[in-house]
Design a protein around this nucleic acid. Structure first.
Lengths: 132, 132
DNA sequence: TGTTGACTTCAACATTTGTTCAACTTCTAG
DNA sequence: CTAGAAGTTGAACAAATGTTGAAGTCAACA
């Protein structure tokens, strides 16, 4: 071996590896670690080493951001995960995020429906507004 | 009358009125106008006057932000509205926003499902990772 | 040994979404 | 007419989400 990148010694994924796997920039990987979305061990030489679930966390986080969750909220959600999460625990987290997103969409739909009741949504009540 | 606030002369809602109706700060109302979420006429004295759909636009915008749409995206969506939108046109816009939000949630769900196939989601493939 | 590439931290910058303040103008009530 | 409430602009600040660059460290290979 040693022709292509030698995979991180000291057991764990490097920043670049996680970045490549998750499709974000290395700077973003560091950013997510600082904000608790992912966790890292350190090597003797102070380099980060991530467990293999790191890139998955980032992928989920990116999608969660797309539906309005903040990095902080996502980090807090992931906080419920133990160091060695079981697939089933992961599913619970995923469900939680999806549910939160769906609730926000429902809130949006309900609000729009509420505004629509009576046949008007955001229409200009010209007649009413200009009444004496 | 004339005891409580007299509603803006020169036909239209003032910044404060829209702010009160929509539940945001006056500064936010000006912000949304600058970014095209709402539009204003100006009085002879250069004050903003909003049509009565302004607060509704803001309410929808706030909820749309909660599901991940940016102010710019929302403004672009509202751009499709004519100056005097009919309720039906409003419904189309509302549908568009809801649909966009639902698509994002679907993307999230599909991605999670894809990651879950094979029984693992984000679990640590310790065995695999440490294989020689 | 030395240089090369990947890593480290820290600071600065950029964008989005607002808020706050100062200085000035306009509107409305009395 | 005049005082005070509310409006105007512009600049500065703030938090969230990153990116970029400088300066230094570390490990591996020739």
């Amino acid at each position: 071996m040693s022709v292509t990148t030698v995979i991180g010694t000291e057991s764990g994924l490097t920043v670049s590896e996680v970045a490549a796997q998750s499709g974000v920039a290395p700077s973003a990987v560091r950013f997510y670690e600082r904000h608790g979305v992912i966790r890292a061990q350190r090597t003797a030489g102070n380099q980060r080493r991530f467990a293999s679930d790191a890139s998955c966390r980032i992928k989920v986080a990116k999608l969660a951001q797309r539906v309005g969750l903040t990095v902080k909220e996502i980090a807090e959600t992931f906080d419920a995960l133990p160091p060695q999460p079981q697939p089933e625990e992961w599913s619970r987290i995923a469900d939680h995020i999806v549910t939160e997103a769906e609730q926000r969409v429902e809130a949006l739909k309900r609000a729009i429906a509420a505004m629509s009741t009576g046949g008007h949504l955001c229409d200009i009540d010209e007649a009413l507004a200009t009444m004496p």
